[in-house]
Write a protein that binds this DNA or RNA. Structure first.
Length: 195
DNA sequence: ACCGGGATGTTCT
DNA sequence: GAACATCCCGGTG
């Protein structure tokens, strides 16, 4: 059983959507993997968010409708993927940080020859971009319509009742101990770090 | 296992 | 000109 995830699912604050996105499945053509680690990014009140200082050419997709895929380029070599949330036109988003590979493992291995183990294929936001072949061409794709072959589906696995909750990773601004906006499936394969 | 630094180029100040 | 929602490699213990 595989259900489409409707737009209404994304039409709420990323901090509410993020834990509910756990155990859903990211699909890009023949490649699929289970979402086991995410981070929420809010808008004007979140100094760690790309949308904090208002719209720019790069973050335009975050200001679009909930359910879009926001792909950004960072550190001169990595593409990272987010699900745009809301509510409404509020520019929040959920960063995908860790996935458990499910289908298309051979393709992922070919795209990520440096990965030593399958658990490393999608363990980290930049690695997800590599394994799924994401580039700026995917920025703005509509996940709800499987635009450009990219979508998120529900295969019947519920989100955990008690997800792991920690601070966000890799930030200067917005890294405060009070901002517990990283969510994980405890013990899952494909986490970017153990906890 | 843990840590430090280099890669690489876009984006914003 | 600095920062960057990162990754990989080579050092040391």
């Amino acid at each position: 059983m595989t259900r489409r995830v409707p737009r209404a699912f994304y039409d709420a604050d990323a901090r509410d959507v993020a834990p509910r996105l756990l155990n859903k499945v990211l699909v890009a053509g023949p490649v699929a993997a289970r979402i086991v680690e995410v981070e929420a990014y809010a808008g004007a009140e979140d100094p760690g968010s790309h949308s904090y200082r208002g719209p720019t050419a790069r973050n335009a997709t975050m200001f679009g409708r909930p359910g879009l895929l926001y792909v950004y380029f960072t550190y001169g070599m990595h593409f990272c993927a987010n699900a745009v949330c809301g509510p409404g036109d509020t520019p929040t988003a959920v960063l995908l940080r860790g996935l458990t590979p499910l289908r298309g493992l051979e393709i992922m291995r070919a795209r990520r020859p440096k990965a030593r183990r399958d658990a490393e294929l999608c363990a980290g936001p930049g690695r997800i971009g590599q394994a799924f072949g994401l580039t700026r061409d995917h920025d703005g794709a509509d996940l709800v319509r499987a635009d450009r072959g990219v979508t998120i589906v529900d295969d019947g696995t519920p989100a955990p009742d008690e997800p792991g909750v920690t601070t966000r990773v890799g930030l200067r601004e917005g890294a405060g101990d009070a901002l517990l906006w990283r969510f994980t499936v405890p013990g899952a394969v494909g986490l970017s770090r153990p906890t």
